[in-house]
Nucleic acid binder design. Structure first.
Lengths: 177, 177
DNA sequence: GGATCTGGCTAACGTTGTTAGCTATAAGCT
DNA sequence: AGCTTATAGCTAACAACGTTAGCCAGATCC
């Protein structure tokens, strides 16, 4: 049922995902949803967990067999593709905070982070820099993908080209460490 | 009145900015707000315009008198500081699209973009690269600031330190072009 | 065969966004 | 000065949404 919610969010946008519309989608009256979810916020969290796990799978899978620049490119592309294909569920991950270390949300987030950490192992990065590099990578991918998903890149230049440019930019920077 | 809305959004979060709460804040009943704004979405757009103009002022002002790496650092810091001090109004800028080229929202966005473009002039960047570099910079700053505003950086390493690290990372990359 | 659990339902309530229609004060014109 | 109009507030009311309470049919289990 949260899968249906995630799909609906992708279609109509997270802001337009209403309990009523989800109920209609699954062929049920709205109050019945509360047998599966305790509130809309709870639904949101579950969608976020699903999205983070799926994103981790996508990035982790894309990286397999690659290392260094190839792994970086594969991870970044997979991540952006996931966000663009599933903007609604990814939006559900923004602004939700794990309640504790064993919150499924936290572990799902760790999985996604782990996939990116694996990419960084292909570069020679000092231990003291790896956290910073990870945050840089996450900011870059998250920022680009969400801006594109929101249609915030207005003018001419080709967006795919910009993203490839950005990947090689990050690659060169990481090598230079 | 949109200033009051922006302030309230900063305090309680954009999601909790309701017509009723804003009305109470300005000492008026809710329907009276519609004498100034045509809908909540309209209010949102106006807050977004305000936020983008303020951000452009902050970044533009911080850059004055600097060039190259200093300008980059000043711009990035000013931008992040603005987002962290005004998370509500900045959140209002996400997901709103200008209706046309003379939409105030579009021109405000251009102003902010222009401030970052000025920073890039301190580097020797090929014309064909400047758009990509601009998008990279915007993704980086937007991504980092929004992730931090959402408390998405979980673990230990110091966040300010990461941001400084990220600035010098971008600087080195831009020089190498 | 009876008890319980599961998952649906209807009815109802509070909140929020919004519209319609009224009114008092301020500003502007003759 | 006196009439008109614009401004900006109000109350009443409605629709949509999230949510709770309470009921009920069927499946599962002892």
């Amino acid at each position: 049922m949260v899968a249906a919610g995630a799909a609906l969010a992708d279609e109509v946008g997270l802001a337009n995902l209403t309990m009523g519309s989800l109920a209609k989608r699954v062929g049920v009256r709205a109050p019945s949803l509360y047998k599966h979810v305790s509130s809309q916020e709870d639904l949101n969290r579950r969608i976020a967990v699903l999205a983070l796990n799926e994103a981790a799978d996508a990035v982790g899978g894309a990286v397999q067999g690659y290392a260094g620049p190839d792994a970086l490119a594969a991870a970044a592309r997979a991540f952006r593709a996931f966000v663009l294909e599933h903007p609604g569920r990814y939006a559900a991950t923004i602004g939700v905070e794990p309640s504790g270390p064993d919150d499924p949300l936290a572990t799902a987030g760790q999985r996604l982070l782990g996939a990116f950490t694996a990419v960084l192992r292909g570069y020679e990065i000092a231990d003291s820099d790896v956290d910073h590099a990870l945050r840089m990578l996450r900011s870059l991918c998250h920022g680009f993908a969400t801006l594109q998903a929101a249609n915030a890149f207005q003018w001419s230049a080709d967006i795919d080209e910009s993203f490839e440019w950005l990947i090689t930019f990050a690659d060169r920077g990481l090598r230079a460490l």
